[in-house]
């Protein structure tokens, strides 16, 4: 028991020394600015500079969030939005990866379909909305399709550029050691494309959230986008702000998770990570 206890204490201390202190420092430093803004906002709201029907105080927004949560409305909205992004992101990413691999390794296909994709890319993805609604109605299908289209392009473009810009010198190393085509792909091409892949899916995820808002604004009966419309129609800016802030939090958490996975998998990259001093 004592030994175990000591071990725990030791490791906590080490943990503190290595990671927690700089992390806390980072959190504190980066919170200074938003905390000041919140206090100023609260103060100005209380003395009546902002009208509460236009910009409610942070405390009022927080209370609204708590009441929405307690009434059991909030979680289904969050879940609905999250699932739409997840499914659309999944479909868009899968199609993008498949196509970019085919196009990247098959020159004929590149000549055949890449110009078309490059042309379609020029269409602002939101311009598809009316057509999708006409085709698929205002249901889940059109929403998920829209998100998938938004996610598709950044993933496709990044993975493809990752594939076509692989250093010939690395491929030659594979050739020198007599690697089979299969091993060339798994041992050299895939790891080499990984950085571009992560750039692609992180951009894609960001766009996914942008498109879920657009999709839900068009017409939805649940979701954070629906909360935005609801707040507008019922003159409740606090509801709108709750939704906006939740979008920020969910976006940050999902991107942060991807970034964490990226850093774990791509620790070998010779790049300086900003802000960590490494």
């Amino acid at each position: 028991m004592t030994k175990e206890g000591q071990l725990t204490i030791n490791s906590t201390i080490q943990l503190n020394k290595i990671s927690v202190t700089p992390f806390l420092k980072h959190v504190i430093v980066s919170s200074i600015f938003p905390v000041i803004i919140l206090f100023v906002w609260e103060f100005l709201s209380r003395i009546g500079v902002f009208e509460s029907y236009q910009l409610p105080a942070p405390s009022a927004v927080l209370l609204k969030a708590v009441s929405l949560y307690q009434s059991g409305e909030l979680l289904p909205h969050i879940l609905a939005t999250f699932m739409r992004v997840l499914i659309g992101f999944g479909i868009g990413t899968t199609v993008a990866i498949t196509l970019s691999i085919l196009v990247g390794f098959w020159p004929l296909l590149e000549k055949l379909i890449d110009p078309t994709i490059q042309a379609l890319r020029q269409i602002p993805s939101l311009a598809w909305v009316p057509l999708f609604i006409l085709w698929m109605g205002i249901g889940e299908t059109s929403k998920v399709t829209m998100i998938a289209v938004g996610v598709f392009f950044p993933v496709y473009l990044n993975v493809l550029s990752g594939i076509v810009t692989i250093d010939r010198k690395w491929l030659e190393v594979g050739k020198v050691f007599g690697l089979s085509t299969c091993h060339q792909i798994t041992k050299i091409i895939l790891p080499a494309v990984f950085p571009a892949f992560f750039t692609g899916i992180r951009t894609g995820l960001g766009l996914g959230f942008m498109f879920v808002v657009a999709a839900e604004l068009m017409g939805a009966s649940e979701g954070l986008g629906y909360l935005l419309v609801l707040g507008q129609n019922t003159l409740q800016p606090d509801t709108i702000l709750v939704s906006i802030i939740l979008f920020a939090i969910i976006g940050k958490v999902t991107d942060g998770s991807l970034k964490l996975i990226e850093q774990r998998l791509l620790h070998w990259q010779d790049t300086e990570i900003r802000g960590t001093g490494k």
Binding site: E172, V176, P191, A192, L266
Partner: peptide, 25 residues
């Protein structure tokens, strides 16, 4: 296999450590 080559640049694969790189062939 009987003919090995060393290039002007080391051409180590950056995602493998020294041990894995040397084992690569």
């Amino acid at each position: 296999d009987e003919i090995g080559i060393v290039f002007q640049e080391p051409r180590l694969l950056p995602w493998l450590n020294v041990l894995e790189n040397i084992r690569f062939g």
